[in-house]
Design a protein around this nucleic acid. Structure first.
Lengths: 176, 176
DNA sequence: GGGCGCATGTAATGAGTTACATGATTGA
DNA sequence: TCAATCATGTAACTCATTACATGCGCCC
């Protein structure tokens, strides 16, 4: 939850916004690197308000539904810096669900294993292309940095996957 | 939840076990690559039993609490293979909470940013050593594979972090 | 007239964590 | 006698997701 609050506070620090606006922004610009459902965003905004990190005032264009415009407070700014430093300093423990399968790879026949990992590799390459395209028209230098890291990690994973598949194939050939 | 079920089914495929035993094994041997709380494991075992993927029979050594020993069923084996192939083939979408901070890096002064990322680098190096030591006395070739992947990814992240810090420092010097 | 866009949510569900409860035995 | 080990869980809680509800205006 911490990083979601960080994200929302960061967006509000940039400019006061209402929930719908924030959700639109996230969906359009951060869909790749963050997934945060709309209902969740609304809920977190309420929590931030309750905690005093943001204030809200209503706004209404005529003939439009009323909006709750949130603005960051002094306490919110402090919390933002606190969360930001923590987020940057701490090593996030990345859960890699894909590792569990690897643990049991030996329960598959070599060619089944190769087939599965090859599919994984294809998916990875597809995703890589998405991110490569994303860098081209990113607006924000910070977002670029985040995507750059992702690209780096994904390319490294691709490399590892290729090597692992090659090793498996070699073992497979050997057996024949 | 899928990968947790996969893990438990995999361990039970290897040998019938009771919950406590499984929890011990996970804590001792997989603590690094998986975190699964004991209460959660017990709960998942019940769910697997309800679903018919495992059977259970009671066992009791005298003077010891009774144990619920779980054994995998034919349906459980099928489910195991199904989950395994899915887990290996699909590209897991890794949530990288650390990316959110990167998005807002420009809200910190260059030297603050460098300080945070340097701390992160130190934490990363510490973790790397833990994994490097873990490979040495791993029992299982599958676990080795999973740790090998992690090492690969973490080293790549380290490299990226170093480069990023260097770039930031350069920009910092430039300004003086 | 029907569907989309705007703007907000609530309710139900599920998954996981934390903290706690139990109760016997074993070892320092 | 005090803590740890064995072995199981339950209850309360948090967090997020899904699906649904509302209601007006605009455009085809």
């Amino acid at each position: 939850m911490d990083e979601r609050a960080l994200l929302l506070l960061g967006l509000l620090k940039n400019q006061s916004q209402h929930g719908y606006q924030i959700n639109e922004f996230i969906e359009r610009n951060l869909g790749n690197i963050m997934d945060l459902k709309k209902a969740t965003a609304y809920a977190i905004l309420s929590r931030l308000h309750e905690a005093g990190y943001v204030t809200l005032h209503m706004e209404q264009d005529e003939n439009r539904p009323p909006r709750k415009v949130y603005s960051i407070t002094k306490e919110g700014e402090a919390q933002f810096y606190h969360l930001l430093q923590a987020n940057l300093s701490q090593l996030e423990q990345v859960a890699l669900p894909g590792d569990i399968g690897l643990m049991f790879l030996n329960y598959l026949s070599p060619d089944e294993a190769v087939r599965c990992l090859t599919t994984r590799l294809e998916n990875l390459e597809e995703q890589l292309q998405v991110y490569e395209r994303a860098t081209e028209h990113a607006n924000n230098p910070g977002v670029d940095l985040a995507i750059d890291r992702r690209l780096h990690l994904m390319r490294s994973d691709r490399e590892w996957l290729r090597e692992t598949i090659a090793t498996l194939k070699a073992r497979f050939e050997e057996k024949k």
